[in-house]
Amino acid sequence: MKAMVWLTWRQHRWVLLSTAVLALIASSLLVAVDLTESPGRSVPLPAFYAVLLQTAFGAVIGMFWGAPLVAREFEERTHLVAWGQDVTPQRWLAGKVGVLAVFALVLAVLMGQGDGFRGYQDGASWALFEAHPLVQAGYVLLGLALGVLFGLLARHTLTAMAFTLAAYVGVRMLLALGWREHYLPAERAVAPVREAASVPKGAEIVASGYLGGDGEPMAVPDICARLSRPAACIAANGGTDSYVDYQPVERVFGFQVTEFLVCFLLALGLFVLAHERIRRGWRPSRTHRRLA
């Protein structure tokens, strides 16, 4: 174990250190902006850079820590040395990933400290969902797992980095725009058809529309959809109420925990896949067989 820590530090210290410096700068900028008292919700430019890094931090870890981890060994053919020691390949992988994951989690907690808006936002907000240590921790693990697995499959650093980036962006979009709203069934606010349903402050609106006589959401008829004020037309076509489905702001923390768990389980699955793949033995790739 101690040997794996030493080896990992020795081989990856530059990328670890530079990422740590970057994360330190970004998080101090975010927190500094948080602590300023001046009102307003705009993001100053330095903090905007930090917010960018916060949004993309899992991708950075995946591309620059995860993807080259195994891919570089194959590419430079140092896997012959690395996996020809007392330590079996799967223990080598587990050790390295473990050390890197711990380091990444520390940085993730750092990155989740501030949100980059002027003035400290007490209480949760859907708009700042990602500015939380737990959520960042989940993303970092997911990125690392994707990177390691693609590195193992592609055996080529650049290719692995590109695939990691694409996959991470895809999963991240799916989580943020698709799944997140549905971790719990949405609550529904209902009002008479000619009035707008009122939604509690800070809630995230999931869907809105009209309810038919049976209390189920109804499809808006084409003739009404063209109107700017369709309420009367809807009422004439059998609509009784208007509704808004929303996630109240009190659920933010629970959803952040859920998002961490989703990412954690995904990452665990990917790590297990990588582990199994390396345990069942790496054969020379087709290109290497052809060369040999």
């Binding site: 530059w14 990328v15 530079s18 430019l45 905007f48 850079y49 960018l52 591309m63 620059f64 080259p68 570089r72 650093t157 650049l158 980095m161």
Partner: peptide, 17 residues
């Protein structure tokens, strides 16, 4: 390669904005 990619990403984002 990898270090150059990282440096490029940093510098380019800063300039692009």
């Amino acid at each position: 390669t990898v270090a150059a990619m990282a440096a490029t990403a940093l510098v380019f984002v800063a300039l692009r904005i």
